[in-house]
């Protein structure tokens, strides 16, 4: 589904990703871990199409399409979803209108008619329940005045509404208490099918107790330096990253 090959990207002339390879197949959950500044969020941003990042080398294939050639909205239309690390507050745009516009634009992109109001409301209710998001938040401005947990649940809610092929969660667990974390993870688990996939970018092994990954990758200095199974995450929790970094430096 997603095939990243030798990806190099920079921001303001500073190279952050230095030749990254990753392959994600349908039905898989990949966790990407790594110390601060290793390039985890850059990877998420480049995949979603944030314009500040410049791709200088490598390619990304998303279901047969050259992902890097697509605008952010086309990527979303193709079924890529980024749950933001810092969801943006948009005063004056109601959450419900926002998601309705998004759902219909993605449908239009895929040649589908707009959802009837009744169907939309049904879907909305169902997905709000999934992440235990209060109906009251629907009429509020997007993320404005939401608590940290509400913002992250709102991200998962949007993901549920758009039903993407590939969901990228950029440190969705940061700053969440246990209850919110459980709700967020539960949402992701409910959405998981054999046809979609998730890339979970995280600092903490904690999240992986709830969302069980098939693969754990360690990102360091813009490259994936180690790949393992969920046990690797536990090891990282216990021993930190230094041993991997040392291991990596020896091989270089």
């Amino acid at each position: 589904m997603l095939k990243i090959n030798g990806l190099k990207a920079e921001i303001n002339g500073k190279e952050i990703l230095k030749g990254l390879n990753l392959e994600v197949k349908p039905g898989e959950v990949h966790a990407i871990m790594g110390p601060n500044g290793s390039g985890k969020s850059t990877l998420a941003s480049v995949l979603a199409g944030r314009e500040e990042y410049e791709v200088i080398d490598g390619d990304v294939d998303f279901d047969g399409q050259d992902l890097l050639d697509l605008s952010p909205e086309q990527r979303a239309g193709e079924g890529l979803f980024l749950a933001f690390q810092y969801p943006v507050e948009i005063p004056g745009v109601s959450n419900i209108n926002f998601i309705k516009t998004a759902v219909n634009e993605v449908r239009e992109y895929n040649g589908l008619p707009n959802l009837e109001t009744k169907e939309f409301m049904k879907l909305l209710k169902e997905k709000q329940q999934l992440v235990e998001l209060s109906g009251k938040l629907a009429n509020r401005s997007v993320n404005e005045g939401f608590s940290g947990g509400e913002k992250k649940r709102n991200e998962i809610f949007q993901m549920a509404m758009l039903n993407p092929k590939l969901g990228i969660l950029d440190e969705t667990d940061s700053g969440l208490d246990i209850d919110a974390l459980r709700i967020v993870a539960n949402g992701v688990n409910e959405l998981k099918t054999k046809d979609n996939a998730f890339v979970v970018v995280t600092h903490y092994q904690r999240l992986l107790d709830y969302i069980v990954p098939d693969f754990v990758h360690v990102l360091y200095d813009g490259r994936i330096v180690k790949t393992g199974t969920k046990e690797l995450a536990l090891e990282l929790e216990e021993k930190g990253y230094d041993w991997i970094i040392d291991e990596f430096k020896e091989t270089v």
Partner: peptide, 13 residues
């Protein structure tokens, strides 16, 4: 930031 957020949800520029 707001513009990117909307676009990342599939909304045309």
């Amino acid at each position: 930031e707001a513009l990117f957020y909307l676009r990342a949800r599939g909304i045309k520029e």
